[in-house]
């Protein structure tokens, strides 16, 4: 029996999340099994600590859905882009593959694009299986 992947998608409160809510009248944003959407006040607020926390709590992959580069009110997406690229490199040294961390940029209206990206990400992560994170009881 294959397990559903566990995926966290951080969505910006000022663009894609409202879009997702509007479009979700007949479709739950969490309709893909194992995918949780978390609203964030700015993609700049999605710190490397939060991403690591997601992995520690069992996420197989983490996706960031922020505003397109020139649409962010706070320049948070520029900072987060650099942090995520560095985080990928650091986590690779822990054995967590860079492909498990994805970031993409969406305007409010681009719900279809987001859903497509999430679907592709889920497929990729399902193929990869769970992330290599040690659980407390496994520490020898």
């Amino acid at each position: 029996m294959s397990e559903d992947p566990r995926i966290v998608v951080f969505c910006c409160n000022w663009s894609i999340y409202p879009g997702l809510q509007l479009s979700a009248i007949d479709e739950n944003p969490d309709d893909l099994p194992g995918v949780s959407h978390i609203v964030s006040m700015c993609s700049g607020r999605v710190s490397p600590e939060l991403v690591i926390e997601a992995f520690v709590n069992g996420a197989w992959g983490v996706m960031l859905a922020g505003c397109p580069t020139d649409e962010c009110e706070h320049d948070g997406n520029y900072k987060t882009r650099k942090r995520f690229i560095m985080l990928r490199k650091v986590l690779e040294e822990f054995g967590i593959e860079p492909g498990r961390i994805s970031m993409d940029w969406f305007s409010t209206g681009e719900v279809a694009k987001l859903k497509q990206s999430v679907r592709e990400f889920v497929d990729r992560i399902t193929e990869m299986g769970p992330a290599r994170v040690v659980k407390e009881q496994e520490l020898g």
Binding site: T69, D75, V90
Partner: peptide, 26 residues
């Protein structure tokens, strides 16, 4: 570690961060 990483990454190429491609950042 994650906090230190975050602080350093934020100021990396800050002056022209809009112009940097992902490859430039790498």
């Amino acid at each position: 570690g994650a906090k230190g990483l975050s602080a350093i990454a934020s100021i990396l190429g800050l002056e022209k961060e809009e112009e940097l491609t992902d490859e430039d950042i790498e």
